[in-house]
Nucleic acid binder design. Sequence first.
RNA 1: GCGGAUAUGGUGGAAUUGGUAGACACGCUAGACUUAGGAUCUAGUGCCGCAAGGCGUGGGGGUUCGACUCCCUCUAUCCGCACCA
Length: 926
Amino acid sequence: MAEYNFRDIEKKWQAYWEENSTFNAQVDESKKKYYVLDMFPYPSGAGLHVGHPLGYIASDIVSRFKKQQGFNVLHPMGFDSFGLPAEQYAIQTGQHPALTTETNISRYKEQLGIIGFSFDWDKEVRTSSPEYYKWTQWIFLQIFNSWYDTKADKAKKIDELVALFETEGNQNIKASCDEDTPLFTAEAWKNMARKEQQDILMKYRLTFLSETFVNWCPELGTVLANDEVIGGVSERGGHPVERKKMWQWSMRITAYADRLLKGLEEIDFSEPLKDMQRNWIGKSHGCSLHFNVENSERVLEVFTTRADTVFGVSFMTMAPEHEWVAELTTDEQRAEVEAYVEQAKNRSERERMTDVKTVSGVFTGSYAIHPFTGKKVPIWIADYVLSGYGTGVVMAVPCSDTRDYAFASHFDLPVVRIQEGEKTDISQDDFDAKAGKMINSDFLNGMSVKEAMPAMISKVEEMGIGEAKVQYKMRDAVFTRQRYWGEPIPVYFDEEGVACPLDESQLPLNLPEVDEYLPTATGEPPLGRAAGWKKDGKYSYELSTMPGWAGSSWYFLRYMDPKNGEAFADPKAMAYWNQVDLYIGGAEHATGHLLYSRFWTKFLYDIGYIQFEEPFKKLINQGMIQGRSNFVYRVNGTNKFVSHSLRNEHETTRLHVDVNIVENDQLDIEAFKTWRPDFKDAEFILEDGKYICGAEVEKMSKSKFNVVNPDDIVNRFGADTFRLYEMFLGPLEQFKPWNTNGIDGVYKFLKKLWRLFHGGANGAFQVSDEKATKDELKIVHTAIKKVTDDLERFSFNTSVSNFMICVNELQTKKCNKREVLTDLVKIVAPYAPHIAEELWTLLGNKESITKAGFPVCNEAYLKEDAFLYPVMINGKMRAKIELPADASKEEIEKAALAHENVVKWTEGKTPKRVIVVPKKIVNLVI
RNA sequence: GCGGAUAUGGUGGAAUUGGUAGACACGCUAGACUUAGGAUCUAGUGCCGCAAGGCGUGGGGGUUCGACUCCCUCUAUCCGCACCA
């Protein structure tokens, strides 16, 4: 084999790995484990594009590196195969989502296969397979049958709660539960009807039914995501959408809010990502406060983080969907309020948050009574108040809150100044809400904001009109989807309407067949169409399915023991593989999947199924690869296309052109003519004999003709080139457009590497057994050191450069010594495994290079005899002083002072650097 | 709006703790070779300038002997915001 023939080599080694189960991982207590996980993909119909493998390549490199270092590596892959696109496709075509999903998965596996990943396919999981979702349902039941004891700060079995109710009622129980839970004694509990007891328990369960607001589209008969609502109408079809309350299953993730916050301290996620989670959880300390309502029994409760500003309250604002709106509206205001509420219904939460420029609201006609001044405070309704956060009522303090100020200005409501001093005027640009001393605030006058806050809170508590309170922005996670293609919720409703969990033995509750994947005529979810979807033929099953995040919240556990029919995974396997050591995936999951899976992990820990509280020890977010679109410019009214830089000489229309017939922005004219029939007779106005296309970075999508599939690249350059190039493109975390322009560079590198081993006649394999010189050892050990460092800090792009430097230098020295090449091939192996295996075999080894070990740098080879010490003057290097590498401080000083410009010297913070203070500066300083 | 990120040659990017900015690669220029290639090799390539030299890390300001790096501020672009996965 003379030439580097990647096709044969890659085929051969991929077959070898499969036959030998090279990457099959088994629990082995004698070896240290390393668990590398990728966020598993949703198998979409478009197939794998060039952006997907980015993270997989990085994790594969780490897996292979760790394996070479002797770790027992678990590196699995699977599919998050429940989801909306397959369902949409089913609605359009009638094809069963399972079938679509199956087809897509095979395509994904095929595409993944040719890239040469070290996945252990024996561990594959699919969230949509009944063997898998049986256990998703099982976990659901565990959560359903649990409550959260806030005193013990952990989840417990619901049976324990029932036992407590029976002995002492619920007065002494501190639990995470619904706010409207009534207090009762043991006696009262025992006298309750079964239905009543179950309703109480529902308020405690960690997954529970409650009424929550959703975006309801009556026309489509379905609930929509905020994303799918644009300007009050559905993205699909443009039908009106309204906010509507619906009975939904939720997960009481708020019970874990504090632990989710604290847990962040012990895991290695990037600070920005942790910030995103902290912000999402949104813990704030403040105070609840009660306002009586004039001529009403109602007491409005508000939450505020600025209790000190109570004296600045000049009006109240309520969310339009607040349940007391109708009651608090006076007859004169009723028409106006109802119109406003109706209008607010059509605005999505997102719009209401985003749009702060439009001030809108309406007066209810009612007044609250200020608890301190006794003055009447008008109650308004405004859609900037969201019902989901806090109590849905805000005490408005226009002198310290910009939104309240805008509202007050717009509706001409009074603004009471309560802070005095600099920066305390909200109408000025330099306003600081926490500056100055309190004024117009009775007993708070003269205090700073910092002093006033606790003073007010203790006063409020003393008066019994409120209490110090911790508030979270995070809401309980809605767990219901009005969809077909998801896990059925293993619950049925008995004759009393009580939600009853299935027994474990009845799992999985298989997804039934339906005639259509649409909601029923009465607006029930698609499962309402399933014939006989009843427990024992009489009790209706829950018609909703679980959300996409259900299956993905625990899949990393299933990988450890994916075929287990007795448990979600063998405890021994979970004890061994334990936490995920390295998790790679997109940052878009920061507040979704990454919080939910942390939540479920903590839950499973609480009830004793696993031994760790945090699922992922370290997380790296790979950046998205965007598409790079190419354009041609058609002269209007002709079939003539003008090259990019000449386009302004004509009236042109810009058209997307398939990036696969463009190289280095140069259009392949022949391919273009055959690309679409209407371009068959196209003419071209060229520059320098070429047609140059325009380019722009956009999201990768079919309609923009900028989707690049890995298959094409692998086909042309090979998997090793593809792997190296994806890494070479830039830092893993960075967002970047795909661009094939530089791929020749890494391809050339592999060819050079191949030729280093093939210097014999006609390119025959030939290595020398001569002893390597110190220079040669230095070259390869420098590479070992740098690549090891790179791997340890997950800087994959720099590794590729370091390989290139090493090979270039060896090539210049015409070095083909076995001693040097052996180490070189070992460090290249994680990155370009196929060529490495081939060269490793040619070097006479019988076993896979994965068992070869990873070389350790011998620092002795890197030592310099002499070192040029830079002389820095005014921050610039002005001279160099040559000294032995091991020169002592005294010697350096002597040499430095001997230099004409040097009057005084200091040692640089970086070793081996002479920092010089030149004469003129010294004169100034001294 | 809230939260997060990014900005370095014609291009992708490097610079690990504040210490020779532009490694490595693409592209481009010139040359060598000839089985005329999507091959290989050599040299050059931040900008201005004949040169000496000057200027240079999105803009402005600051700290420092010295700033891509630290601080303040502005601008532009991208991502998330709860039923997309």
